[in-house]
């Protein structure tokens, strides 16, 4: 079994679907040159969703961490950026440094909180997000519920700013996807899958489960912080209740569950589906959100593998296979 994986890992040739990905990337890079402002804005939002979905899939699909508190890092990233800009850093530098700061903060958090498991971990992370939100609201700069506008962003030309946000979002999504691809093929990625399938068995062959989970947790925190930065760069306003909102986690869960938990392409498919639903039904407000919940329930009970899980089991085609396909896992 182990040698089997080893042989699979050696075949690190560029898969066919990668060429399609490059073509899509080239097309997306060029979009601001011919598309209207509204389209660029909407695609930037899609990039935020994509980032969140990919990060949540890394956590739940590979490291077995169900987080309903990922908004903690989304919101904290925005707060760090606001504070750094206030301290005099140029906005886009503040975004990058702030996201790194979130990743650093996530290290001690992961060491403490990942001792919990399952539902306990899920709720503890949620409480953490609430504590961070309440703490941020104490900052006089944020003024409690009121929030703050990132006025420094107004020094940029609106079109330039919009396009820059778009390209940064695209760069972040592509970068994190490539990072996730290699992470999952690395020793740590394989260890994570072993832990997800059977934690006790994985520990018995010498895998440091805690360390592996920490790596995934910190990367996901960084990715969510980046997503929070792009959101902030686009909306310019920072409000604790919005940026630390539980709805971000609802969206992440929906995208990953619908697209396919634990598949590489799943969160991408899920994010696109979610984005389209948002565009078509977003105006229905509460009923639209209730519908999202209902779809999530249906997928959890009827099609737990999501769209990609279904496609992969029917066709045997696994885009960006990580060396261990769905079929492989089901083998007794």
């Amino acid at each position: 079994m182990l040698t089997d994986i080893g042989q699979r890992r050696e075949r690190l040739a560029i898969p066919g679907e990668a060429y399609a990905a490059f073509a899509i990337l080239a097309l997306l890079i060029a979009v601001p040159l011919f598309a209207g402002n509204a389209a660029v804005d909407k695609l930037t939002t899609l990039f935020v969703y994509l980032l969140l979905a990919v990060m949540w899939n890394l956590l739940a699909g590979y490291a077995g961490i169900v987080s309903v508190g990922q908004q903690a890092f989304f919101g904290l990233g925005g707060y760090f950026a606001v504070r750094l800009v206030e301290a005099g850093l140029p906005p886009y530098w503040a975004f990058f440094v702030g996201a790194l700061g979130v990743a650093i903060v996530a290290i001690p958090i992961s060491a403490a909180i990942l001792r919990l498991k399952g539902g306990e971990l899920a709720i503890a992370l949620w409480v953490l997000a609430e504590v961070l939100r309440l703490a941020v609201m104490f900052d006089p700069l944020v003024q409690g519920e009121t929030g703050i506008s990132l006025l420094a962003m107004n020094s940029f030309d609106p079109t330039f700013r919009r396009n820059l946000n778009y390209w940064l979002g695209l760069a972040a999504v592509s970068g994190m996807l490539v990072a996730a691809y290699f992470l999952l093929r690395s020793k740590i990625g394989l260890s994570a899958k072993a832990i997800r399938d059977d934690e006790e068995a994985a520990k018995s062959i010498g895998i440091d489960a805690m360390r592996v989970k920490q790596v995934f947790f910190v990367i996901a925190a960084f990715g969510c912080a980046i997503a929070g930065m792009i959101w902030l760069a686009n909306t310019i306003t920072y409000q604790p209740r919005t940026n630390f909102g539980i709805q971000w986690t609802v969206f992440m869960l929906f995208m990953v569950l619908v697209g396919g938990l634990g598949t590489f392409a799943g969160p991408i498919v899920g994010a696109v589906v979610f984005f389209l639903l948002q565009e078509i039904f977003g105006n229905y407000g509460a009923w639209y959100l209730a519908g999202l919940g209902l779809i999530a329930i249906l997928f959890a009970s009827m099609l737990p593998g999501g769209i990609m899980g279904y496609v992969q089991s029917k066709t045997g085609f696994v885009p960006f296979s990580d060396g261990m396909t769905q079929n492989n896992r089901k083998r007794p």
Binding site: A60, G64, V66, V68, G118, G119, A122, V250, L253, F254, L257, L261, G285, A286, W287, Y288, L289, A290, L292, G293, L294, I295, A296, I297, A300, S301, P304
Partner: peptide, 28 residues
């Protein structure tokens, strides 16, 4: 009962989805 067969993840996801249905349904 159906989601419980799929490990610890699915019940959490299903009940989180149920929460979204209840909150927004009551709001509607």
């Amino acid at each position: 009962a159906r989601t419980l067969e799929g490990g610890f993840l699915l019940p959490l996801l299903a009940t989180f989805g149920l929460g979204a249905v209840l909150q927004n349904g009551m709001q509607g």
